[in-house]
Design a protein around this nucleic acid. Structure first.
Lengths: 221, 221
DNA sequence: CATTCTATTGACACTTGTTCAATAACGCCA
DNA sequence: TGGCGTTATTGAACAAGTGTCAATAGAATG
């Protein structure tokens, strides 16, 4: 019993039998880049275990083996994809260096929002990867967010908005989480809030939060 | 060629050959409850695909088949675990009904923080599940968080802190995200911030954010 | 045109989720 | 107490996906 014909037939996609697709030979850099881009796109809507190597390979027009040749295993591929998305985010949101602190903060926030709008897929890969992934991936995500907020903390709003204490660091982190949630929620349903209102909300919330810091005082009522 | 002896030998754990563990027959409710509790615990530190049915079954002292009998498949089990964690959260953070709005807000926030501290594992299951999981699971998570924030919005701080507009809703959601990040970050590294400072930070941040809402006005500088 | 190099493949082995007929513990009634 | 139906539980077979590696084919080089 058992030992059915196995049917390991991992069909080579939708191709007439006998005329297999010609090999498409690229340089390692090109291939790597192609696969990472594809990964970013595919992992924006699926979680890692919803993305099979089969689908990925077919979508890329390569064999499964090639993916292992480049990335070793599925999780390493995921990690590379997340790292690519994170690097991209950091690079494309370089802060301005002119204007007063408030203006620069607004500019930073604007760059961030514009990036997320323009690269929704890539940003989702990053966020979703961080949440579902292992420790290494979460680290990449944390580093990226720290880089973003530290940039605002040090360069754009140095000392003028909030000072540097453990409580301030914590609150700053919280502000980052809020900011991320604001963009993503707004993108899902933007009704009733314009882009400018969103930007103002994000920029103004930081000094507003900073105001509760120095010596905590209850709000008037 | 193929058809090796298959060796499907999914060893029944660490048990001497021949003396299998006696069946432990529970009522469906008890068994379900046991499995959900275990799931909450195990999924606090692993992601779903890092948790094999094998491990789960062994840890619970049951066969793999039984899990399928109760939950159908792995994802349905995950969903049930997340739902249990969410229900638990809602139930155990019932808000107080006395005091002025600010006091009630502080009490709500305190109940939330205390719950997370006391049920760290369960809360992590919820958060991690929501991030890595499918749409249904994310829905459960969103509903739970909306229930929490709506409670504060309607009952604890009705109209007295912020009014009800799309922008306010959005900001409220963002505040929720910030609050969650604050607790979890603080738990990871509490140095420099006391529990009371954290609570004050969370409670005061809501009116502080509300102050930027009505007609956006740039902060003084 | 022959040869070397290497990007790429495809079949195979292995792990793990899923199904289902068989089994054994429990309550019930004679 | 002992047979009997009910049903919680099991284990082996099945399916689908991941990871491995020797063989292959496209390009560059002489």
């Amino acid at each position: 019993m058992g030992c059915v014909t196995a049917t390991t037939g991992r069909g080579s996609g939708t191709r007439a039998p006998g005329n297999r697709a010609p090999r498409n030979r690229l340089s390692p850099d090109e291939r790597r880049s192609q696969l990472l881009d594809l990964g970013v796109r595919l992992l924006a809507t699926r979680s890692l275990d919803e993305l099979s190597i089969d689908l990925l390979a077919e979508e890329a027009g390569i064999s499964r083996g090639l993916l292992y040749h480049y990335f070793g295993n599925k999780h390493a591929f995921h990690e590379a994809v997340v790292r690519r998305a994170a690097d991209d985010l950091i690079a494309q949101t370089a802060p301005p260096v002119t204007g007063d602190p408030i203006e620069r903060l607004l500019a930073s926030v604007t760059a961030y929002v514009d990036y997320v709008v323009a690269n929704y897929e890539g940003y989702l890969s990053l966020v979703k990867g961080a949440a579902g992934g292992n420790e290494a991936i979460r680290q990449i995500y944390d580093d990226a967010r720290n880089a973003l907020t530290d940039r605002i903390f040090r360069e754009d709003a140095q000392g003028q908005i909030i000072e540097d204490t453990p409580a301030a660091r914590l609150l700053m982190r919280g502000w980052g989480a809020m900011t991320e949630d604001l963009v993503l929620s707004w993108l899902v349903d933007p009704t009733g809030v314009t882009r400018e209102e969103l930007l103002a909300m994000m920029a103004q919330s930081l000094p507003a939060l900073g105001s509760i810091l120095p010596q905590p005082s209850v709000v008037e009522h």
